[in-house]
Simulated scan of single mutants.
Amino acid sequence: MDLVYKKEYEVNPRTMALVAGYDDQGQIITEIIESDQCFYLKDWPSKIVDHSCRYFASSLEGRISGTKQVAGFTHKPPIVISQKMSMYFFPIISPKRKECSWIAHKYIRTYKGENDHSTTITFTNGTSINVPVSVGMISNQIQRTAQFRFTLEDRLKYSAPKNDVVAENYA
């Protein structure tokens, strides 16, 4: 397969994963897996995630801090890049490490552990990736992301103004 590189990228609703890898010179690159295409960026995944968070008026550090506030998760916390676009991602290792890959929660169909203690994740479009972490860790990250997503969406639902209150304020 030919390597197609792009210069910049924002995570979007089609993004399924940002997978860390290495180029021929041993530099970390990111394989961007979208629902309909794959390509590479000459940056590490967490840098791309940070850039995308900044596009939506925050930062990776800010999103991590928000997750800690909402759900209490401090290690390998899932984040929301855009709640309105339902873009929830989780890291497979510490997001401070350049080798950290990020997975979109909503696209996971199945996952299974392999004999080498890695995990194969299959996405809703049938694409699969293998990540170098245990199935227990992936299972935990999926559950934590679901809990965070539910808590945040529930919090936002109950803090939204009622239509009559909004109408009253503008009458």
Rank of each mutant, 00 (worst) to 15 (best):
G126N: 00
T120V: 01
V165G: 08
Q25G: 05
E61F: 09
V70F: 06
Y111G: 00
V133F: 02
Y22E: 10
Q27G: 00
Q27R: 04
H105C: 06
Y170K: 15
K98L: 05
S118R: 01
K68R: 11
G72N: 06
I121M: 00
G21R: 02
I79N: 11
E114W: 01
F123I: 02
V4C: 05
M16C: 02
V11P: 12
K112H: 08
T122W: 00
F90S: 08
F56A: 14
N140R: 14
I28N: 06
A104Y: 05
S52A: 11
F39K: 02
E168H: 13
I129H: 00
P77M: 06
K76V: 11
E114I: 01
Q25P: 02
P161K: 12
I121F: 03
Y111A: 03
Y55R: 15
K98D: 11
E31F: 00
S118I: 00
H75R: 13
P95A: 03
Y5K: 04
T119F: 01
S134V: 06
S65H: 15
A71M: 06
L156K: 13
T124H: 00
T74N: 12
V131P: 07
Q25T: 10
N169Q: 12
L60F: 07
F39H: 05
W44M: 08
F148Y: 14
M16N: 05
I33M: 07
V166Y: 08
G26E: 03
I29M: 02
P161T: 11
L41S: 06
G66I: 09
T145R: 03
Y170R: 15
Y88V: 09
P78E: 08
V19P: 03
P161F: 10
K162T: 07
E10R: 10
E10S: 14
N125K: 00
G66H: 12
D164Q: 09
V4E: 12
E99Y: 03
Q143K: 09
I92K: 07
S35W: 01
K76D: 13
T145Y: 06
K98E: 11
T30M: 02
R54P: 05
L60I: 09
S86Y: 12
E31H: 01
M1G: 11
Q25R: 11
K68M: 11
D2Q: 07
I79Y: 07
M137W: 05
T67L: 05
G136V: 01
F90T: 13
G126Q: 01
P161M: 12
D50S: 05
I64W: 04
S65R: 14
R97A: 07
M85L: 15
Y5I: 00
A171E: 14
P161Q: 15
V131T: 02
P45F: 04
Q147T: 15
V70P: 10
S35N: 06
V80M: 12
Q147V: 14
D50A: 04
S101R: 03
R14K: 10
I93D: 13
